[in-house]
Write a protein that binds this DNA or RNA. Structure first.
Length: 809
RNA sequence: GGGCCGGUGGUCUAGUUGGUUAUGACGUUGCCCUUACAAGGCGAAGAUCGCCAGUUCAAAUCUGGCUCGGCCCACCA
């Protein structure tokens, strides 16, 4: 045993311990282990700094990883980063001050890769700094060649299964980013607008007034709609109306999707203003009129407005309508519109050619798959089910961008046939590579697919990507399905669901047996942290002032699935715990300096009491961890450690440890045995949550006897049935209660706890008297009472028991 | 508008198969330098458990309605 510093210097300790873990490969995964536990963790997006939510949810999964490791599993815990696609491209454009649209595609892609490489190590360091016990030799990026290969193979397999098709369809389009975007990338934004009533001219010369916020879509108008039950308009069904300014004729139609209460009850349908327009377009087989270009300008059909930006055109058209007397009224409104979350641009719906994965026919299978997964917490499954039940569109996986994983596809210039790459070519870039074979029409003149897959097409393959890192031909057999997916609740519908989809297609199995869903870290007012609100706190800032253990301790407070607000005071609580742990251990080290653990008979009731309580705590912590309830485990541990062990046991045992001669022979040995055993259990029980202080204490004191290189690969404490002793537990509890009463008495008398008292008087039943007899000496010595006697003239309450007390100073 | 989750001392939070005095922390406050810890210890004050109704001998806990907050979805002419 080496010299014990008075204070725990956490900065120094954490660096030293990180080095040790690294050097000794404590978290190295062994595929040949008989017991394997595998974790599919979310690859964080490199386009932002590590934020509190990351620290929060990754700490929580690390609690589980560390617990399982101590339960004897070799833990497969790889770490990925998501550096694929649009977020990275945006970051690079901003950092390097370039525009991908103004660069050679190959140059931009190269710049993206080199930027990722510049940033990657520092980014990952953030996770190392909070003590994540991933096997860092198993790292992947969602854009690396390994991921590209798997992603492209997934595409080819699905294509061959007939699950993928490319089709022209109305889809969400961002005019700024000039790409199709996923529904999940939409955000609601409250914007000012005007709700304009304008007049279409009916065949009989009368006006038909419609209300719209988007008069610039008039050239794209293809019909007018009214509700079938709307008496005002029903008779107009089938008549034609002339579109103001633009002059083409459209028909008045009836459809139940019209809200008669809204505006004038008559609405124009444009291709495309919103989702309903798409539905009408399909249901009524309407013509297509495109008024907006891919870069957000007016098209030729807009006549003199051609080439104008959408908003500019809207303004001028309203002015023109007003001049012409067509604008009947206009009122200012605020309404929410869909914008692209990354650039805040109002989205458009354009008919473009995209790749889709066909899956709407399999809703039932997906819901059944969800039932085979154990959800923690259970209620999160409902979100998954609801999402599937509400699905209406196939999954669009293409984007019109330059940076991303290309589709392994060429189109035959002669016959138009789709030619997919041969598996042996992967990863492939159709822009620079050629197909292995001629087209079946005999031509070898090809046009490459210029799109890239969106990030979700790849990130839904993390189980396959992660397992692919293992150099073992049976890796898939050994690791799939994985044991656990961890993620936050906001992307159940997207990431979790679509991973199940891919897994069902490719492996015909669920991707993992369990899923653990975490909440968010919110700011101190319970609001989501976001850059625009300026309320973001980064873990790196916290770690300058507090140990990683304190941050993790905070993360362990939250019940699984619940959001938690971040307040610095809660991190302080974590620091206080670390300090307490250190000090209590220091006390033990002083008394156990020459102690060698060996099994002895425990003689003292108070020792039996704490050992029995410890057994109880181990049971609670183990059961809680098995249900992924780390916060329950932590709470049980904390109560035991702080209240039972520190506040009571150590205080009671102190006298026996310093003055063993006052006690029967063997008392000191009994205390030594107990103290060692209990402290070791404590260090282990909290090791998953506060790995650094636990490791430090283990290294200084326990390693010598326990042999394992690290506390994190020692065995989780076992329940020893022979330590359960309910009678001693009750005696000990009563002793603590009596000691508490004396402390309170001394406190009210404003005297030091050291102040001796002459006599403790106790009145209680004979049954309780027998229990108290076994601990009376400990009570007396702990509170420095000269005598203790059973008498009937007492009136002070003894908390929780039918006992009355009296004290004579 | 729909789904799921939550509302507990000033602040954060445990407890929800109904049953003595509702857990812990931060903050406030009194005392105490006590051979681990003043970054501490021992006490104290502070909660009609979001609101209303119901079931029950008994409700923080169960039921219904309302309200506020979070996430997801829909709407957004």
């Amino acid at each position: 045993m080496r010299e014990i510093p008075n204070k725990y210097e956490w900065q120094d300790a954490e660096n030293r311990i990180n080095d040790k873990w690294n050097k000794k490969e404590i978290y190295k995964f062994d595929i040949n282990s008989k017991k394997i536990y595998s974790i599919d963790s979310p690859p964080p997006t490199m386009s932002g700094n590590m934020h509190m939510g990351h620290a929060f949810s990754f700490s929580q999964m690390d609690f589980i990883a560390r617990y399982k490791r101590m339960r004897g599993f070799s833990v497969f815990f790889p770490f990925g980063t998501d550096d694929n696609g649009l977020p990275t491209a945006k970051l690079v454009e901003k950092m390097k001050n370039v525009k991908s649209s103004k660069m050679e595609r190959g140059d931009f892609v190269k710049l993206c890769h080199s930027t990722i490489n510049e940033l990657r190590d520092a980014f990952i360091q953030g996770w190392k700094n909070i003590g994540i016990s991933a096997d860092w030799s198993l790292s992947y990026s969602t854009i690396d060649l390994h991921s590209q290969k798997i992603s492209q193979k997934s595409f080819i397999d699905l294509y061959k299964m007939g699950r993928e098709y490319r089709m022209e369809a109305p889809y969400i389009w961002c005019p700024t980013c000039q790409t199709a975007i996923a529904q999940i990338e939409l955000q609601d934004k409250e914007l000012d607008s005007s709700f304009n009533d304008l007049a279409f001219t009916l065949k009989d010369g009368k006006d038909a007034i419609i209300s719209t916020t988007r008069p610039e879509l008039l050239p794209a108008c293809v019909a007018l709609f009214a509700h079938p039950d709307d008496k005002r308009y029903k008779k107009l069904e089938g008549t034609t109306a002339k579109v103001p300014i633009f002059g083409h004729d459209v028909t008045v139609l009836l459809d139940e999707r019209v809200d008669p209460e809204k505006g004038t009850g008559l609405v124009m349908c444009c291709t495309f203003g919103d989702q309903t327009d798409i539905e009408w377009f399909k249901a009524h087989k309407l013509p297509l009129r495109v008024a907006i270009t891919k870069d957000g300008k007016m098209t030729k059909i807009a006549g003199k407005y051609e080439g104008m930006q959408i908003k500019e055109a809207r303004k001028i058209i309203i002015e023109d309508l007003e001049k012409a007397g067509i604008l009947k009224s206009s009122k200012k409104i605020t309404h929410s519109v869909n914008v692209h979350e990354r650039c805040d641009t109002e989205i458009e719906i354009l008919k473009t050619s995209q790749w889709f994965i066909k899956y709407l026919d399999l809703k039932k299978e997906f819901i059944d798959a969800g039932k085979k997964i154990n959800w923690y917490p259970e209620y999160m499954r409902t979100r998954y089910d609801n999402w599937i039940n509400g699905l209406q569109w196939d999954w669009c996986i293409s984007m019109q961008r330059s940076f991303g994983i290309p589709f392994p596809v060429w189109y035959c210039k002669k016959c138009g046939e789709i030619n997919v790459a041969d598996e042996s070519q992967l990863p492939v870039d159709p822009l620079t590579d050629k197909p292995k074979n001629k087209c079946k029409c005999g031509s070898s003149d090809f046009e490459p697919d210029r799109d890239v897959m969106n990030t979700w097409a790849t990130s839904t393959l993390t189980p396959q990507i992660a397992i692919g890192l293992i150099d073992d031909k049976d890796a898939m057999k050994k690791l799939f399905p994985m044991d656990l997916r961890t993620q936050a609740h906001d992307i159940i519908t997207l990431w979790l669901f679509n991973t199940v989809v891919k897994s069902m297609f490719h492996e015909n199995n669920i991707p993992w047996k369990n899923t653990m869903i975490s909440g968010f870290a919110l700011d101190s007012h319970g609001k989501k942290m976001s850059k625009s609100k300026g309320n973001v706190i980064e873990p790196s800032t916290v770690l300058q002032k507090y140990p990683a253990d304190a941050l993790r301790f905070w993360a362990s407070e939250s019940k699984l699935g619940d959001d938690m607000s971040y307040q610095e005071k809660d991190i302080k609580t974590g620091l206080k715990f670390v300090t307490k742990m250190w000090n209590a251990s220091k006390f033990a080290f002083i008394h156990l300096e020459d102690y060698k653990p060996k099994k002895i008979k425990v003689t003292n009731t108070i020792d039996k009491w704490i050992l029995s309580k410890m057994t109880d705590t181990i049971k609670t912590c183990t059961e809680a961890f098995d249900e992924y309830q780390y916060s329950k485990s932590k709470r049980a541990f904390e109560n035991f450690f702080w209240q039972d062990l520190c506040d009571n046991y150590l205080e009671i045992a102190k006298d026996r440890l310093y003055n063993p001669d006052k006690y029967p022979k063997g008392s000191k040995e009994s205390a030594h045995y107990t103290l060692y055993k209990v402290l070791l259990a404590c260090v282990k029980l909290i090791a998953p949550i506060t790995p650094y202080i636990s490791e430090e204490i283990y290294q200084i004191f326990f390693k010598e006897n326990e042999k394992s290189e690290s506390v994190h690969i020692t065995a989780w404490p076992e329940i020893e049935k022979d330590l359960i002793d309910k009678t001693s537990e009750k005696s000990g509890d009563i002793a603590c209660s009596i000691i508490g009463a004396v402390r309170k008495y001394k406190s009210i008398q404003n005297v030091s706890m050291n102040q001796p008292i002459k006599k403790i008087r106790i009145s209680c039943s004979d049954e309780l008297k027998d229990l108290i007899d076994t601990v009376s000496e400990d009570i007396q010595n702990t509170v420095k009472a000269e005598t203790l006697e059973f008498k009937d003239d007492c009136d002070i309450e003894c908390n929780g028991y039918d006992i009355k007390l009296g004290f004579d100073m």
